[in-house]
């Protein structure tokens, strides 16, 4: 087997070079669904971080006991458990937010970002590396969600975190907080990220 990346490499890769949303196009359901406000995006990222870190650590701890044909069952079981905990926790302590996010918290179970990290990293590497990988990927996910949410909220409602920042003369582009706004923003930001990284790698090749 080729050398596996170290903990630090895993951590850094998750944030930008292998950003789950912009580079791997994983976890797009929450990316499109809950990014009409920054608050919802941050809560969703926090829930995903909790689930991903716990699932990665547990998977890494039991990686030597896994049987190849039963591993996916175990990943799903682990993920579902932590998602349920996150869901109950939000309903108990952030009731209004849990009503806003509605079914999207239970839907973290099918967020392929998490099962992908269990498969790619946690089932092959040690606990420390798996934890660093989970935190890196979660930061990348949070960054992506927040960037989309910030654009949508500011254009759609003229504010951030529910506080008005644009002058009253700004006519809110309601479409930005509706589903089409998610696709438009995501497409444009994805293009921007690709264009930027192309330019950088082009420069590196010429240099």
């Amino acid at each position: 087997m080729a050398d596996q990346p170290t903990a630090i490499e895993r951590f850094v890769q998750g944030i930008l070079p292998e950003n789950p949303v912009y580079r791997q196009l994983l976890g797009l359901c929450p990316t499109l669904a809950v990014t009409n406000g920054l608050q919802a995006a941050i809560t969703m990222s926090a829930a995903v971080t909790f689930v991903l870190v716990c699932a990665n650590v547990i998977t890494s701890l039991i990686r030597n006991l896994l049987k190849p044909h039963l591993r996916i069952v175990i990943f799903t079981l682990t993920i579902a458990t932590f998602v349920t905990i996150a869901d109950r926790f939000l309903a108990a302590y952030l009731y209004q937010m849990s009503k806003v996010l509605g079914p999207y918290i239970p839907l973290i179970i099918v967020n392929c970002l998490i099962i992908c990290r269990c498969e790619v990293c946690a089932s092959k590497q040690g606990v420390f590396t798996a934890g660093a990988d989970a935190i890196g990927q979660s930061l990348g996910f949070c960054l992506a969600l927040c960037s989309i949410a910030a654009v949508r909220e500011i254009l759609g409602t003229g504010g951030l975190f529910g506080i008005r920042v644009l002058p009253a003369a700004w006519s809110d582009w309601v479409i930005m907080v509706l589903p089409p706004g998610a696709f438009l923003t995501f497409g444009l930001l994805l293009g921007l990220v690709n264009w930027y990284s192309d330019r950088r790698s082009g420069k590196a090749n010429r240099g």
Binding site: I62, L70, L77, I85, F89, A91, Y95
Partner: peptide, 24 residues
């Protein structure tokens, strides 16, 4: 492993529900 994890996670979730249920 699947069976024992299911048992373990199941009881953990029952505990969570018992702690947080009244609050919800």
């Amino acid at each position: 492993l699947v069976l024992s994890l299911a048992l373990f996670f199941g009881s953990a979730l029952a505990g969570v529900q018992m702690t947080l249920g009244p609050k919800i």
